[in-house]
Design a binder for these strands. Structure first.
Lengths: 154, 154
DNA sequence: TAATAAAGTTAGGAGTGCCTAAATTGTTTC
DNA sequence: GAAACAATTTAGGCACTCCTAACTTTATTA
């Protein structure tokens, strides 16, 4: 059932990845994450959060004692940061290259981030670097694509 | 629970989309699809297929009577074709633009296809058209990126 | 500090999607 | 056409992830 994937060698479900990422972002914004913050961010009910946190706790990815705050463990923090990096790379690509509005780019990224391979993400990020660089071979083709796209269906 | 998504207005699970797509491809290659073909293509056991086909049958997307062949209904065929178009667009993008080898492009596409929005796919396909065209603003930047990428880490 | 409100947990249940084992039906082949 | 084999279905179970309702703990405040 376990597939080598991140530094501790386990493959998390999309759902648990979402929880981890939420905790990461809440911690970043507010230092501590509470169950209700996680619930409202993910649009689930409190008991769902309790269950998920228990799973993450068993896996050693969060620290949590009853009725208290939730904190990412060191490993949990690393994994969450990885997930968020993927999220960012995808969002940037969808927004800057494809020209999706930022909201849509984020929500699409949020779903795709769980099913994309690391190599693909790496290439996506590299392509972005290449495409927006005025000095590399492409000379700002992201910009050019968006101009072309706007004219396209006229 | 239903979200407007395709022409009959329902959102299928990733799993059911996979079944539909498999049947579509088997039908294309061999005219009729049998349960065991579907099972082996998806890497699941026969009872899993029986269950999934029952669900698709209830939704009116396949025709199937006990111990017989499976056939896509008209609606099922349209939805499957849509799914496959997304699959192709994604695969092409990952292979031609990002330079992933075809196998990896396909397997990544296979997972991403369930979570990407139609608008994003459209833009991806348009970007591909733009990027490989020698006449449009980009002048074959897909090619240039791949050359740059190969040199990158040297 | 006792009452109330807010946050969190427990209990129990539903839907999905997979599995194994066992029964059934269909197809060959002698 | 009956035995043997292949394909499919049924039965039963498990993991995951969500839910509602009810209960417990913690925080607020009058």
């Amino acid at each position: 059932m376990f597939r080598l994937q991140n530094e501790i060698g386990l493959k998390l479900s999309s759902s648990l990845e979402d929880y981890l990422e939420s905790i990461y972002l809440i911690q970043r914004d507010q230092t501590v994450a509470r169950m209700k913050d996680i619930a409202s961010r993910l649009g689930v009910t409190a008991p769902s959060v309790t269950g998920a946190i228990k799973s993450l706790n068993k896996l050693g990815l969060v620290e949590h004692s009853n009725y208290g705050y939730v904190k990412l463990s060191e490993t949990g923090g690393k994994i969450a940061a990885d997930i968020f990096r993927v999220h960012q790379a995808l969002t940037d690509f969808l927004h800057i290259i494809l020209g999706l509005d930022y909201q849509k780019a984020e929500s699409d990224a949020c779903r795709i981030e769980h099913s994309i391979e690391p190599e693909t993400v790496r290439r996506l990020a590299d392509f972005l670097e290449f495409a927006i660089s005025p000095s590399k071979g492409c000379k700002g083709c992201a910009q050019k694509f968006n101009e072309w796209y706007l004219e396209k269906d006229k």
